[in-house]
Write a protein that binds this DNA or RNA. Sequence first.
DNA 1: GGAGAAGATATGTCTGACATAATAATTCTT
DNA 2: AAGAATTATTATGTCAGACATATCTTCTCC
Lengths: 254, 254
Amino acid sequence: MAEPDSNDNPQSSAQVARAVARLILTGVWREGTTLPREIELASRFDVSRASIREALSLLKAKGLIASKQKAGTHVRARFDWNMLDEELLNWTLSALPTQEFAKQIMEVRRIVEPEACAICAVRGTDEDFARIERAYRGMDAAGMDRVAYAEPDLQFHRGILIATGNDFLIAFGATVAAALRMSFNLSTTNPGAPRKSLPYHRAVLDEIWARNPDGARQAMHKLMDLTEQNIVSALSRQKKRDTEDESARGRRAR
Amino acid sequence: MAEPDSNDNPQSSAQVARAVARLILTGVWREGTTLPREIELASRFDVSRASIREALSLLKAKGLIASKQKAGTHVRARFDWNMLDEELLNWTLSALPTQEFAKQIMEVRRIVEPEACAICAVRGTDEDFARIERAYRGMDAAGMDRVAYAEPDLQFHRGILIATGNDFLIAFGATVAAALRMSFNLSTTNPGAPRKSLPYHRAVLDEIWARNPDGARQAMHKLMDLTEQNIVSALSRQKKRDTEDESARGRRAR
DNA sequence: GGAGAAGATATGTCTGACATAATAATTCTT
DNA sequence: AAGAATTATTATGTCAGACATATCTTCTCC
């Protein structure tokens, strides 16, 4: 979970990277667009060309852009973007936390996590299970405290992925982290919602301890159902609130 | 598929990035290791500090390393590595193409692709299907030509992922690409093997056209079975050959 | 012995310059 | 006049050296 997604990174190249990423993610600079020259970017963001280059190199690594000498730097096609990268996910999350995004992220979680859970039940070591158990205890101990609940929640899901011993499933933890952060941000409107998932986590854990892959898969599936439901309803609540604010502002403007 | 993984990137910073990544991936610089100072790296790789910084910033973006002022740059924990990144996958592939890696990559493909295929059958547009059909025709036209077969093969699988309209599943295409490249590299010992998958692809495509999610899932599952079988047997053949070379070299040394 | 101050050091940033490669413009040839 | 070859242009790639900043270490003082 690291830190809340505020601008807590003092490094200026990182800030530039984030700003440019935002421009791309929100579609201001569309796919195929050639972006301004490095010198222009430098003067626009009021940093040196070196910092710009460092920022761009970050975005290059994430597949957002590509550059060729003389030709310039352009925004790559959408499906070259490395959307499973944690930073990129967080940027997307804070740039456009839409219902569409929530649906997509829950769709993959539904595909991956139940299977990972089944594998975990078969292949995980007792040590792995103990780590997941500790995470569960942390969630339980957090009570109604949303903030304290978030970290062990992530550790729970991550623990299952780690127990599979599959590097690709482990890397999927970044996506899970983004999803959980999204739920966390949304849970302000309904602080009790996360806590409701506790017994579902317990059920998953019991099936794992029993080394029952089918049960584990099913239990995780139910947890996914609940999570998706929470996110969708929170998003529609938020959307409703936003449109109310919008109309209020509209009235005031008249 | 882009290009074969030879050293075709003239950019020196990219070369350094690759070299350092290799050192990390092969475990020469383990997790937690603090790597040499930027100046030392610069003199070791015989490039300027700026290029070193650019290389490191690439690796930072992929989660391999992290730096703090004064403290230095260190190798991050393995599960922070963004293993689903295409470049990182290719580096891993050329650094240590082990049986373990093959197993892992096929395990995720098995989890993701059949489900993606089912979603594709439901949600894909006729236009999406036509693109997949074109890819299939390309595979068919390639005949026994391994090289010509590879590209449309990737397009086939990628087309299914794209048709889901889910950005996360689309991003999974990088992993599929790495897997296919691995099969391609291995198919030298059995050039006919890829061609055998053609009817299985046809079966998948038919189920998709019929908009039959369950059938599509099952057909893709069978294709995954075949692919895994091919890879595993090719790897064991290669391993056998390697050990034979090894012992031959041993005899010669005596 | 512990708290605070001073120094050392590795990363972060800046400046300005030149190298390189791809494009655009120009010249030369047929 | 059309096309091929050559030159000019230009944006990224690389280099060098300097200073800023943050953090770890060491030293000093109470």
